[in-house]
């Protein structure tokens, strides 16, 4: 259940309990609330995001990559991509950042009950899907086949590698990892993640797909899923645009009639299919 916020524009201080380096340019913050500023346990739905404020630098929307329910800690995984994330990358344990959220729509886990679930992630797009596959595995009996497809740039860029290895060892979830460019020693799959979709086992008449990654990767993944016979309304994608207020007031993330921050970031494909590929948006 989503916690109702008193004032969604007011940031709350959280302290960086741990900073875990994932790859050369990605890292995960494990955050705990500053004493006296907590709101009890932080509840969110997989796919939602928080606004992370680096004091003196700026605020960016970052998807929630996990929580640790037993101790109320919150996890955010991001890549150094701009000024704010660059500043975030320089923070260390004990530093404090501001958090507003959670905001936005979420992945349709309840809609996936009783169906095959295909999770398709590209690059850092695995982070917003991490709470999804953890939830699916945690409630394994409620779903049919679970397939996780992940495309990475190189073997060195694979996110949550040990987690994925553990998942692959799990016999009732199928995990396929591919890299766009192989390097020495890599014996896994080489090729784009969309090519994996051609032969993945699922029943298109009773399946849901959740896709997250660069927009081009998502568009081509949708094409492949449609070619396999999956209905548009059973394909969900997570969009990103320039979000500022996160509550649909400022208009920075307007996407045709939608606001990515409020109506998204997760959309059923059929709701925005006519907007994707429109250059002006």
């Amino acid at each position: 259940m989503t916690v109702l916020l008193d004032d969604p524009m007011v940031t709350t201080p959280w302290v960086i309990d741990q900073m875990r380096r994932e790859t050369a340019d990605t890292f995960t913050f494990i955050l705990k609330p500053v004493k006296g500023h907590g709101r009890g346990s932080f509840q969110f739905e997989p796919g939602q995001f928080n606004m992370l404020y680096v004091f003196g630098t700026g605020e960016v929307p970052i998807s929630i990559s996990g929580t640790q329910e037993q101790n109320g800690k919150l996890e955010h995984t991001t890549r150094v991509a701009g000024t704010v994330t660059g500043a975030m990358g320089k923070l260390r344990s004990g530093d404090v950042i501001g958090i507003r959220g959670p905001f936005g729509s979420h992945w349709p886990i309840e809609n996936a009950i009783g169906k095959d679930v295909i999770v398709v992630a590209g690059g850092i797009g695995l982070a917003p899907l991490r709470p999804v596959y953890n939830a699916l595995v945690g409630r394994r009996d409620e779903f049919n086949k679970i397939v996780l497809l992940y495309g990475s740039r190189t073997p060195e860029d694979i996110l949550f590698r040990s987690e994925l290895e553990k998942l692959s060892a799990n016999l009732d979830i199928e995990v396929f990892v591919t890299v766009d460019r192989s390097t020495m020693g890599w014996r896994g799959n080489v090729g784009v993640v969309t090519s994996l979709l051609r032969n993945v086992p699922f029943d298109p008449r009773n399946a849901v797909a959740m896709v997250c990654g660069p927009e081009i990767m998502m568009r081509f993944s949708v094409h492949e899923l449609q070619r396999r016979g999956l209905k548009e309304e059973e394909i969900y994608i997570s969009m990103e645009r320039n979000m500022k207020c996160a509550i649909g007031h400022c208009g920075h993330c307007q996407y045709g009639p939608e606001f990515i921050c409020k109506d998204g970031p997760v959309f059923p494909y059929n709701r925005i299919s006519n907007l994707l590929g429109t250059r002006e948006l």
């Binding site: 998807s63 460019r181 081009i216 990767m217 320039n242 993330c253």
Partner: peptide, 20 residues
Amino acid sequence: RLQILDLYGKNPDHQGYAIR
């Protein structure tokens, strides 16, 4: 073509928004 695009690499023309 998708491999050549290097979709997961840093895009210098990226507008700077980041939700991931």
